[in-house]
Write a protein that binds this DNA or RNA. Structure first.
Lengths: 221, 221
DNA sequence: CGTAATCTGGACAGATCTGTCTGAAGGGGT
DNA sequence: ACCCCTTCAGACAGATCTGTCCAGATTACG
């Protein structure tokens, strides 16, 4: 009822969402006008207002669509790893793989939030996205045996946010290696799987026979 | 010839810069129109165009003004500490102290860049700012004896960027404690220096009447 | 085939924004 | 007093944007 058959021409709603995804993400939700969206989608203006109700709702639908896409990609990346620690790193690797793509323009939620006033539908969508990612990090941090899973989750989200911002603003995909290395160091510090003890000047060798595998913090490049 | 005495009435240029700083930072450089800026500054529209040439140049001047302010604040914070490690942490503490202020709305350069197309004067100002901060981190990392100062500097900048984004989007000043702790862990991992005392004074009092944690009604818990 | 829903193309209104221009007021230096 | 420069107040043009509306074309489906 809400979607058309895949064999026929995509419905006006789907074409509008696809056009909004391209234009809003590439140029910003405020800079792109309604006329350009409907022209790029090949639909009439009335279809947009009949389907979504207005520009703000279209932006919200665009962000929700992106939320679903990122969620699916990260879930897929996490499912491919065995241990919670590797799953956390897989999140950063999946993120880092986006940096090199030509269509990468940073985090859609950060960008859209910077363009709109707080309390809008945009902020709501951004809150949903951020809460989902934080809960993913918190669950993995808990499974990894972190002393304070919430604290580690928050630290990892700081890194995640900073990585998108830096990669977009500096046009530098190599941010991925820095963020992954930093994530590995933070995970190590929070789970104590290699030498992290405040007072003693213990050297690096803390990985005993029963300890989890020590990993090179400089993998991925 | 370009500035007036501080005892007399501020010049049109200064009043315009002050108004731009308030309005652009609080509501975004695109959302705020020229008319609101000149009304808030109490100057004529012709004065704006005679002084700056156009809106884009005013935005650029606003960002340069902010760049100078942040630079001065961070330099002051760094000068108050003795060791390079403490100086790096002082950067995060100075940043974290901003999170609780009611006028805090995230990083002006990130916000402005999200609102404008790349290659503009805004991107230029943002590049200058980011390069300055990165060199500060790199210098301190080198003095701290990091094995790879550039790598540590980049990691710290990721944290710095992520902290502003998270503090602004989540309306949560307690991000400051997470970013400082993460910075300390990254510094320790990169320098092998785990020098620690009891937890130093908290950078920001998280007590804010209007900043509760948002409780997002997210699916997929 | 016929009906009902959907989509289309475009005109239109109302608002807003940037930038220009005019004409006058004010203030400091010589 | 005179001159020069800055500033003020606001009208105005030109463009753009959101949202509404309408009559005709198209499509789905019984």
């Amino acid at each position: 009822m809400v979607t058309a058959r895949s064999t026929t021409k995509p419905s006006a709603r789907e074409r509008l969402l696809a056009a909004a995804n391209e234009l809003f993400y590439a140029e910003g939700v405020q800079s792109v006008g309604i006329d350009r969206v409907i022209e790029h989608a090949g639909v009439a203006k009335a279809s947009l207002y009949n389907t979504f109700g207005g520009k703000e709702q279209l932006i919200r639908a665009y962000l929700d669509h992106r939320h679903a896409g990122v969620t699916a990609r990260l879930v897929r990346a996490v499912e491919g790893r065995a241990t919670p620690r590797e799953q956390m790193l897989a999140v950063f690797e999946s993120q880092g793989a986006q940096f090199g793509k030509p269509a990468f323009h940073g985090c859609a939620f950060i960008r859209a939030s910077a363009e709109t006033s707080p309390g809008s539908l945009v902020a709501e969508a951004a809150d949903n996205y951020r809460a989902w990612l934080r809960e993913l990090f918190a669950r993995l941090a808990d499974e990894a045996g972190a002393a304070d899973p919430e604290a580690l989750a928050r630290q990892l989200q700081l890194l995640y946010d900073g990585a998108t911002v830096a990669a977009a603003m500096d046009h530098d995909p190599s941010v991925a290696v820095a963020s992954r290395a930093a994530a590995a160091a933070l995970i190590a510090a929070a789970t104590g799987d290699f030498g992290w003890a405040p007072p003693p000047p213990a050297p690096a060798a803390a990985a005993g026979p029963g300890a989890p595998d020590p990993l090179p913090a400089t993998a991925l490049g």
